[in-house]
C-alpha cells in the first residue's frame, strides 16, 4: 500500500499541467482499491462459512 502511494506522489511534479489531474485521480483510485482489498480480506474471515445454508435458512414472515 505504501509503495503505491509513493509512486503516485512523484508523478505530478514531472508532468505537464494538463495531465496533472490524472495521477491525482489515479492515486485516489489506488487508495480506494487498497482499502477495498483490505475490506475484502476481512470479509473472507467474517462471512458465514456455509453461505448457502446461511442464506437458505434466512426465512422471514412478512411484517408491517
Amino acid at each position: 500500500m505504501a509503495e503505491h502511494t509513493q509512486k503516485q506522489k512523484q508523478a505530478p511534479s514531472r508532468t505537464e499541467e494538463t495531465i496533472e489531474d490524472l495521477p491525482v485521480g489515479a492515486q485516489q483510485g489506488e487508495k480506494l482499491k487498497a482499502e477495498l482489498d483490505d475490506l475484502l480480506d476481512e470479509i473472507d474471515e467474517v462471512l458465514e462459512t456455509n453461505a448457502e445454508d446461511f442464506v437458505k435458512s434466512y426465512v422471514q414472515k412478512g411484517g408491517e
Partner: peptide, 18 residues
C-alpha cells in the same frame, strides 16, 4: 451466487462480529 447474497444479508447483521 449464495456468497453474494450472504454479503447482502450480513451487511445488516446486528452482531458486532458479523
Amino acid at each position: 451466487d449464495a456468497k453474494l447474497k450472504a454479503i447482502d444479508l450480513q451487511y445488516h447483521d446486528m452482531r458486532a462480529d458479523r
